[in-house]
Nucleic acid binder design. Structure first.
Lengths: 227, 227
DNA sequence: ACCTGAACACCGTTCAAGT
DNA sequence: ACCTGAACACCGTTCAAGT
């Protein structure tokens, strides 16, 4: 956290890198101007010389993460791969970046302006679709249907705290018994899903599996709409 | 805003109703303890007698919206309808509620605890799936694949400000020309989509259409997986 | 039981001032 | 050009006190 070592002069880049590190280590709530400045061995007001304010700091954070995705994706080898495989590996690569920055999906959700890099990123996805025979109409809708998948996360509606998922990961037998009364189908599902589980200590929601299932569901549906 | 009229004693319910009204009128950022209290003709500290704190106020807000969805959905007539139609009308009904509370999707995204009402709501969806021949395995994954659709919103990744969508609604010819250089497919898509538009003043993203497209893509994909 | 006033520890930010 | 100190206007919240 305390990176007081480097006495290089401050810069927008150095501020953003420190901000990402702080968010990774202690979460976005810990990311205050005063605290970030302290980590950089500087006074809070110094930050304003390099960034117009907090909002723009948060925009910069998103920019950093998108840059990481772009860098990761650009290293992929997509020669001789069909469109589904190309997109699949791109989305999964983005997902690896997001797993390193669990706070990023939530933060992205709060940003209003679309970071310019995003257009370049979506351009690549769109190109893949068009060159594989999709009409602009269907490709446009595909981009919407993908939702946040291209950025490497499936919008879990509640609590992106752990990678667990929206439904409780730890469910004791007592809770299930109580659930069985007024929520019979849910209780039955938990039981059914827990039963044939390879490693029950992992919980019954495997977010990687869910992510890929959603991805394939969409890709399969689109394949059928191809022009 | 100023609802100083009713001199009925404060209550959790009255606080939450006023909070929803304030968020509707001026957005969540305007919703501070002091301001909310002022709207109720009371001092800020009085709120703490009815709610443990701000976080629980926000939880209560989500609770109110979910209640509205539950009420709307319960009024639906689903007799003699297949599962796709049932879910479709349920999700679209939820969407109408969300359109009345544009701040709700963003707020829901920040909540960590799953409100209890949500389980009851998902129980109904799950029941529909199971009774239509889905296995628990596929139904479970369907719930994940739906993402936020059951709650009436498609996770737009950036800026849920207007109902416009994530890609710019207003795109001038100058911007397109400039775009054509480094983002050729995107530029072509905007042109293609704008061209055969019934009412060009509406912009080229119709969020209702996108919402229904995503919904149908998922429902069609699931239909094929039915056991 | 229900509400209040004063106070505390924090925010982001401005602005004039230092080097 | 780059950084700082003191100050301002806000937060959420505690706590002892009023009725």
């Amino acid at each position: 956290m305390k990176a007081k070592t480097s006495r290089a002069p401050l810069s927008r880049e150095r501020v953003l890198v420190a901000a990402v590190a702080l968010a990774d280590a202690e979460g976005v709530p810990a990311l205050t101007m005063r605290r970030l400045a302290a980590d950089l061995g500087v006074e809070a007001m110094s930050l304003y010389y390099h960034l117009p304010g907090k909002e723009s700091l948060l925009d910069g954070l998103v920019e950093q993460v998108l840059g990481e995705i772009a860098a990761t994706v650009s290293r992929l080898d997509s020669s001789d791969k069909d469109w589904r495989t190309q997109l699949r590996q791109r989305f999964l690569a983005a997902r690896e970046v997001m797993l390193r920055h669990p706070w990023a999906p939530g933060l992205i959700g709060t940003r209003s302006a679309v970071p310019p890099d995003v257009y370049t990123y979506y351009e690549g996805i769109l190109a893949t679709l068009i060159e594989s025979g999709f009409s602009y109409r269907v490709a446009h809708r595909a981009l919407h249907a993908f939702g946040s998948l291209p950025l490497g996360f499936a919008q879990e509606v509640f609590s992106p705290t752990s990678a667990g998922g929206s439904l409780e990961t730890e469910t004791g037998e007592a809770e299930i018994a109580e659930m069985a009364d007024h929520l019979p189908h849910l209780a039955a599902m938990v039981t059914a899903e827990t039963h044939d589980l390879a490693d029950p200590t992992l919980g019954w929601c495997d977010s990687q599996t869910e992510f890929e299932f959603t991805l394939d569901l969409l890709l399969d549906g689109l394949e059928r709409l191809r022009g």
